[in-house]
Design a protein around this nucleic acid. Structure first.
Lengths: 355, 355
DNA sequence: CTGAAAGCGCTAACAA
DNA sequence: TTGTTAGCGCTTTCAG
């Protein structure tokens, strides 16, 4: 195979050339460019080196640097499903924060279906320094293998009990806000339509709902979980079962706008008007939430801050600090739109058609 | 028998150790492990090396290999917005395909707002071999700089005229299917609610709609574009303008489920029932599309195949082939749900409430 | 057929 | 204060 013909003068400038131009050696140039604080050097030489670097357009070769330093400057973000808007929001800020800390982010999808060892490949081939794991769930193979590979990592959003490295949000508080909002509107019989209960944050939100209801003196909420989440799955069927089995319910708190949309569909099919006959609200905001019919009241969460906090926490680990649990303190916030309203005075009765 | 050997202790197994155990030298071990076809070696030695590698759990250090070979084994995927479900679908398959071709994928978000040079950093610091660019749009800085850096790249979904390296789908055909679907239902006055027309695929879809309408003898469709897409933006306002200004329209073809949802909202506010008074359909399917009220008829697109094709095309470039335009041939497919139905016999008249 | 030598580009340790 | 030496772990010559 022929050698790639490289345009003349197109060749990448190396550190040695910068050093030569500044009339010094590579190590000195390296330490100046990397701002080595232990280096005592003539200010004039420093200026010469920096100027040479600038003039030549020098960019360090990260790979060479990585090989020498024994650190790659790359992190991997492991998501369960990329199509879930929640993860997109977390990831987005994580990428930015990582870059500001000097790391690139590799993406890995670790779906429930395809138990894939690409994460391990990445780790064991020395491509990355640490792992942001948003795909934790019980029984996931990754967890076991992480113990073997001793690689710094944090669990994002989905925590792992006792791992001591969970970066999560105030999920229980989110439920509390939701329940308070509904209770303030006079609702007493409410349902919590949950994401799979195998997932840690889903469980924390259920707990939050139950605790808040108890504290407010409401009857115990109905809890139903949608066990398959991929691509909508059969959320509609579950929503139908929920609304059908519990006509006494006047408000549903769903674990995502998608689940809430399923509830809207189910109620609509049964001729129950939202919010007149039944209120519906969702955990987390998405662009679609505001465009549902009716627009969904949601509990907005600090997903961007979560992404940012997760990276910072991991970077601290990489700098030698021990791992630690972290709760993003920003408070959940109810955004009231049109899907929640005062509870009906009389128990809701299915009507022939929307009002 | 499939006992997974584990590197006990901190120390990572090096090639030299594999070679030692197989009683040969590193170069030979390397060539055997990398399946060098020009290597003629005793089958027995080959077996010894592979067995030693397996037993020691050897994983090549990708960084060292990259440094030596002058190729990093990493690609960057540049997306405009991660929260757009379309890109999530493309990206998802791209990551898998890349892995199967031996590449990791770095993620970069290149939003309209934050003109960010992190892509260039990645390139000029020698972290990646090539670029998958899904964020192309006129005036984007990246385009100019790409010419300077001579880095292999392809444009995904959003093409750049005359680049000769666009990997796109049959967008015009998607519009054709949509228009045919609506025409078959008796609609004649239709509207195309477009994504920003600065974007190449949006333009191709508009062209497709106009061409199909002309071919079918329909009056020229109304075209209105939503110029800001980020986070829903003011899609609802635009949708209101569209439906309000054109009461004669009996069907709207929107450029995404989100835009379609905005149209559903607007029509609902105006007391027009969907699909009774007006049909609505969308380009591309998402989990939410099926859960809208009413569930959206959509034109499903092969986004996964697009992601896969883009990676393959880029990899070919990296292997020395010249870039080439590529159209993913899989046909757009209309998924009929409940938001489209026969055109009303009389021109639709705003009514006081849904039927 | 196989192995020894020579780096890829950078930086940590040590000399001067 | 500065330069020299020595690799990081791998793979590509090029001799044996």
């Amino acid at each position: 195979m022929a050698r790639q013909p490289v345009a003349v003068g197109q060749h990448r400038v190396r550190l040695a050339e910068v050093a030569a131009r500044a009339v010094t050696s590579s190590p000195i140039a390296s330490r100046i460019i990397n701002d080595d604080p232990t280096l005592r050097v003539r200010p004039e030489l420093r200026r010469r080196v920096l100027r040479a670097a600038r003039e030549l357009g020098y960019r360090p070769n990260e790979l060479a640097s990585a090989l020498r330093r024994g650190r790659t400057g790359a992190l991997a973000f492991v998501v369960p499903t990329l199509t879930n808007p929640t993860f997109a929001r977390i990831l987005r800020r994580a990428v930015v924060e990582a870059r500001e800390s000097g790391y690139a982010v590799l993406l890995v999808e670790d779906s429930d279906e395809a138990p894939d060892d690409s994460v391990l490949q990445l780790v064991s081939s020395g491509r990355i320094d640490g792992l942001l794991i948003a795909s934790a769930r019980p029984g996931i193979q990754l967890l076991a293998k992480l113990r073997t590979l001793e690689i710094p990592h944090v669990f994002v959003n989905r925590g792992v009990d006792g791992s001591g490295r969970n970066v999560v949000m105030r999920d229980a508080d989110a439920s509390q806000r939701a329940v308070e909002h509904l209770a303030a509107l006079g609702h007493r019989r409410i349902a919590h339509f949950a994401a799979p209960l195998a997932l840690d944050p889903a469980r924390r939100r259920v707990a939050g709902t139950l605790a808040a209801a108890a504290r407010l003196g409401l009857p115990e909420p109905v809890v139903m979980a949608q066990e398959r989440l991929e691509d909508g799955g059969d959320a509609l069927a579950t929503a139908r079962r929920l609304t059908h089995a519990h006509p006494e319910i006047t408000a549903v708190y769903a674990d995502s706008p998608m689940l809430a949309a399923a509830v809207l569909r189910a109620l609509n099919e049964q001729g129950r008007a939202v919010p007149h006959d039944c209120s519906v609200m969702a955990y987390t905001d998405t662009p679609m939430a505001a465009l549902c019919t009716p627009p969904l009241t949601v509990v907005e969460m600090p997903l961007e801050a979560l992404g940012s906090a997760a990276v910072l926490s991991l970077v601290r680990q990489l700098e030698g600090h021990p791992p630690a649990d972290l709760v993003v303190h920003l408070a959940p916030l109810v955004l009231q739109r049109s899907s929640t309203a005062a509870a009906p005075v009389a128990p809701a009765v299915p009507r022939t058609r929307n009002r």
